[in-house]
Amino acid sequence: MSALLTVEDLRVRFPTRTGVVEAVRGVSFTLGRERLGIVGESGSGKSQTGRAIMGLTPPHADASAKQLAFDGIDLISAPPKLRRDLRGKRIAMILQDPKYSLNPVMSIGRQIVETLRRHERVSRAEARERALDMLAAVQIRDPARVFDLYPHEVSGGMGQRAMIAMMLVAGPELLIADEPTSALDVTVQLEVLSILDKLVAERGMGLIFVSHDLRLVSSFCDRVLVMYAGRIVEEIAASELANARHPYTQGLLNCMPVIGADRHPLPVLDRKPEWAL
C-alpha cells in the first residue's frame, strides 16, 4: 500500500508572553488508505497535528516538518493556493461541535453547495442535486427540508451529519476527524460514527481520527497513536491495545470501567515528566 500521507518530525510552536510553547514536538507517521486513531488528553497536541496537516495552523503559530507529503505532493513547499485547492477537495476535516463549526447565518444547503462549487465547475442545479444526494448519504431522511434549514434549527447529531456532508461532498481522499462525536449525546454518537464508518469504507478514504476516547478509537480504527505532551509515546495496532507497553497507554486503558469490576479506589491517570522528554 503506497503512503497517502507521510509526516516526519512535525513541530508546531506557539509564541506566548512567557516564551515559545511547543504543542507538537516531532511527530512522525505514515498513513495509507486506513484508519489511524490519534489519542491523547487535551493539550497533548493531537488536534494541532491534524490542523498542521490541513495547513490550518493559526497564523501566529509556526508549523514545520522534515517532511510532510500528501500523495507525493510536498505540502511544506506547496504555495498557499495549491494547499487551498487541496483542502476540501482532497483533504477534508470534520470539527468537533456543529454548533460552532457551521456558519450560523448560512443555510445548511448553501454551505454544502459552497464546498462543491469551490472545487468543481458545476451548475447551480447540479450542485443542489449533489448536495441533496450527499445529505441523503449521511442518512438525513428529508434532505430537501434540511437543505433550507439554518444550523440552529437542527439537532447536534443532524448538524454533525451536515458537517460530514459538507466536507465529503467534493470527494476527498483523506479525512481528518477532530473529535467528531465528543460534543454529541451518547446515543447520537454511535449513529454518527456508523455513518462516518460506512462512508469511509465505501469511498476508500484514509482517515485520521483524533479523539481523547481510547475505547472509541480502538473500536473504530486500525492503528492507534498515543500522544502525550506533543510526542507520540506509543504506536500500536488497535487489536493489540490490551498489550500496550507504555505506562501512559495502560493508564488510559485502566480508566475504562469494566462491568462488574470493583472501582475502588478510582484509578488516577499517572503523568511522569520523563515521558515528555
Partner: peptide, 12 residues
C-alpha cells in the same frame, strides 16, 4: 470562531 476554521478547511 470555529466556522471560520471550517470554511478554511473547505478550501475557500
Amino acid at each position: 470562531q470555529e466556522y471560520i476554521v471550517a470554511a478554511r478547511a473547505k478550501g475557500l
